[in-house]
Amino acid sequence: MSGDAAGRAASIDSSTVRRVAGLANLVLTDEEVSYYQRHLSRILDYVGELASIPRQDVGEFDSTTLAFALKPQERLDQTQPSLDPEVALVNAAKTSGTTFQVPRIID
């Protein structure tokens, strides 16, 4: 815990930081865990102000609702040429034939 947050419970503890990092497939050193715990706690404390918003008054909001309505757009069922497989694979670190190679997956 950083000094300025002493006396207050952290919004996020170190095991949560590790769990969240795991969900995002990040590995953190111990120093990084404490760095992010400190920072994320500060941010989460700050955004706690939103708790006072009466959600039922404004209703559910989906992320595409903006000051104006976006008209949904659809495309016709028409095909276009796919990428040349060499081009599709050119940026990959490891390939085999025309596939992308990864360490063996255990099902």
């Binding site: 495309r75 069922d77 028409q78 095909t79 276009q80 796919s82 990428l83 497989p85 599709a88 694979l89 034939g97 025309t98 596939t99 992308f100």
Partner: peptide
């Protein structure tokens, strides 16, 4: 459908690996 759900790649079955991608 002839094309995929969110892009214009064809939906033909049995094409060689990564020959139907964009």
């Amino acid at each position: 459908t002839r094309s995929k759900l969110f892009c214009s790649c064809a939906t033909t079955f049995g094409v060689a690996a990564n020959h139907q991608v964009c």
